[in-house]
Design a protein around this nucleic acid. Structure first.
Length: 693
DNA sequence: TTGTGGTGT
């Protein structure tokens, strides 16, 4: 490696130091010959986690819960499951599970472990993510899976009885499903004392996680030592392979973080040795603005600077550019959203510029609306961002906020996703597992009672929960089986009565992905024209049916998608989700049936799920002002909707985006009489009569 | 007349 580095500008020795780590990741092509295996063993032993092997196994043996504080590159994800297996935790048909928040992490960890063990992936080592079950129920002893999949498994096996050890990795990220899982695992422990948990967490969270799992003080007046593991969690810290990152703060608060980021990039380029730069901004708008400043401003026009955007909505090909190696003598600048904080790892980054902000979702239980707002990040996020500079050699992180702000103002962990979300999907999951007292559930971070009560109300109004807040039969149990937002699931249930389940399933699949349209800001006009080819007078949901029909008629052609500004990858995903939903529908007794073009029944089925989102056009309105029937909130049809400027008198929306106005996205026209048909208890007749003028 | 932080079943 080091021969590629230009002497004098770099420190080759440090690069050599890291070579073990680099080799560890690149030696994967070696065969399973004796020699290859031996060298793999050596690589395993070089990982920081190796010297804690005995300690980890001892703690797992003696404690119900072990918290491993492991930094990036410690090897914990791939090694600990193997240590457990070697120590006998997979004997007697038992399985060791390791959960990840993301699909990609599941796949890469599983392949790596299979390779290290010299076994075929899917046999002794396997993985499960949605749409992909690479396991063998007879053979698989180590199983990687997303935490969402493990939650689904609990619906069939509430005690997760086949697992001897469950390792919850990346628990510090506190994703919605990780938090639900942690709460449930704590409950399972009471019924299964032999179960062991390993929670892998970042430093900052370890203590609160430990106190959450500490059940030792709950034993009331029972004398004598019980057999079995200790109830108070053990904490073990494992160092990572990251290099030191020097932190710099601004001396005075900046008023414009985009301009500050751009001038910081320019200063790094002028003054610092080679090495790529990663800039954290909040969204596509910020990123475009920063790139424009960097590339068009003559003062900041630099030679040798390759400026690349990175965000989730970016077309796949453009996203891949950030992974291409930086040509010699050039410097890559990646301007990114939070996607580079956890989901993607860029090698070669030496400098990080941190704006201190990210976009975060906030849910308002009073209005029942989720907003996406720019908000300050937490200390934990700031540390994670800084760490991105230390992967290949010592790095530098430039924070566009003051040190005083970091120390005194920045919150330690931020607000967990659970506390910022609509809890309808979460509540139905718990109800499906028979948890009656939702308000008393022991969460790692409790959501607000208002949000929980709102979720219970919504589920009650949908007929999914009864007066005792228990799942109704069969509707409630059916909805819980469908892996979608319960409002969408309710639409699918209703479609059975209307004879349009095929259409409802297609609509559900499209609604559950981000967008089927290929978004390109430069080609807005072409996109609008393409949309007109499929636009239906009834609204966006029916438009989706037209697009899907065209896609099928084209033979699922990528070329056809391209010509129509439709995202081919999205359509493939729609197809996958459709297949899954059709299987589930049949299993729960929904007949697959098409209404053969009768769009009235489709609209009625949508109404049966989304009646709470009904809106009426204000009779005096000339600019498309609607009011929600339930809360009299002012809303408008989003300009991306096919019903924009059509303004039917009555509409139902799928979701709201909130900017300067509240915009309804994915809108369908309805007849108000359907509302009282599908939800008589929710709507009273007098509310629906237009106000006299 | 406009906008998509990131995950996931």
């Amino acid at each position: 490696m080091s021969r590629f580095w230009k002497p004098g500008t770099e420190k080759p020795r440090l690069v050599d130091d890291e070579e073990g780590g680099v080799l560890f990741y690149t030696a994967s092509s070696s065969s399973s010959s004796g020699y290859g295996h031996a060298s793999m063993e050596k690589q395993r032993q070089r990982l920081p986690v190796f010297k804690y092997r005995t300690a980890i196994l001892y703690l797992v043996e003696t404690h119900a819960t072990t918290i491993i504080v492991g930094e990036t590159g410690s090897g914990k994800t791939t090694q600990i499951p193997q240590y457990l297996k070697e120590a006998g935790w997979a004997e007697g048909g038992r399985v060791i599970a390791c959960t990840q928040p993301r699909r990609l992490a599941v796949q890469t960890a599983a392949s790596r472990v299979a390779e290290e063990m010299g076994v075929k992936l899917s046999e002794e080592v396997g993985y499960t993510i949605r749409f992909e079950d690479i396991t063998n129920s007879e053979l698989t002893r180590i199983k990687f899976l997303t935490d969402g999949v493990l939650l689904r498994e609990m619906m069939d096996d509430p005690l997760l009885s086949k697992y001897s050890v469950i390792m919850v990795d990346e628990a510090h990220e506190r994703s919605l499903s990780t938090d639900i899982l942690l709460g449930l695992l704590k409950k399972i422990q009471r019924r299964r004392p032999e179960l062991r948990l390993i929670i892998s967490s970042a430093t900052i969270e370890a203590k609160s996680m430990a106190s959450f799992f500490d059940t030792s003080r709950r034993r009331l007046g029972r004398d004598g030592e019980e057999n079995g593991p200790r109830k108070n969690p053990a904490i073990l810290s494992v160092e990572g392979r990251g290099f030191n990152v020097q932190i710099f703060y601004v001396e005075e608060p900046v008023s414009d973080y985009i301009r500050a980021a751009v001038s910081t990039v320019n200063a790094i380029h002028d003054e610092e040795p080679m090495g790529d730069i990663l800039v954290f901004l909040t969204g596509q708008d910020d990123i475009d603005a920063a790139i424009q400043l960097l590339t068009e401003d003559p003062h900041s026009r630099k030679q040798g600077l390759i400026v690349l955007p990175l965000y989730s909505g970016l077309p796949r090909g453009d996203q891949d550019l950030v992974f291409s190696p930086t040509p010699r003598g050039k410097r890559k600048v990646v301007i990114s959203t939070n996607i580079a904080e956890t989901s993607l790892t860029l090698e070669g980054v030496v400098y990080v510029v941190d704006s201190g902000f990210s976009k975060q979702r906030f849910y308002n239980p009073i209005t029942d609306i989720e907003n996406l707002v720019v908000a300050p990040i937490s200390k934990a996020s700031a540390r994670q961002r800084a760490g991105r500079a230390g992967r290949v050699r010592p790095g530098k992180c430039y924070r566009l906020y003051t040190e005083e702000y970091f120390i005194n103002e920045m919150s330690a962990d931020g607000i967990s996703e659970m506390q910022r979300s609509n809890l309808v999907p979460c509540v139905i999951q718990l109800k499906a597992l028979g948890i009656d007292n939702i308000l008393g559930f022991d969460w790692p971070a409790s959501p607000s009672p208002e949000a929980l009560i709102r979720a219970l109300e919504v589920l009650y109004s949908l007929g999914i929960l009864d007066d005792d807040a228990k799942l109704t039969s069969p509707a409630g149990f059916q909805v819980a089986e469908i892996p979608l937002d319960p409002l969408v699931s309710k639409m699918i249930l209703a479609s059975n009565d209307y004879g349009c389940s095929e259409e409802a399933i297609t609509i559900a699949a499209v609604l559950s992905i981000q967008s089927i349209w290929f978004s390109d800001r430069g080609a807005q006009k072409e996109l609008d024209e393409a949309k007109l080819r499929f636009a239906a007078a009834e609204g966006d949901h029916v438009t989706f049916l037209n697009v899907y029909k065209g896609f099928i008629q084209s033979g699922k052609s990528s070329n056809w998608c391209h010509k129509n500004h439709i995202n081919y990858h999205s359509m493939r995903k729609v197809d996958e989700i459709r297949q899954q939903l059709r299987r589930i529908a049949q299993r729960i007794g929904i007949a697959l049936k098409s209404c053969e073009g009768d769009m009235q029944v489709v609209r009625k089925a949508v109404t049966a799920g989304f009646f709470a989102n009904a809106c009426r056009l204000e009779s005096f309105s000339h600019n498309g002002l609607y009011k929600t029937v339930r809360g009299s909130q002012e809303v408008y049809i989003h300009p991306s909707s096919v019903l924009f400027r059509v303004n039917p008198k009555w509409v139902i929306f799928h979701s709201i985006v909130s900017t300067d106005r509240q915009y309804m996205r994915n809108v369908i026209a309805i007849d108000p009489s359907w509302l009282t048909d599908v939800a008589p208890q929710f709507y009273q007749h007098q509310q629906l009569n237009p106000r006299p003028h």
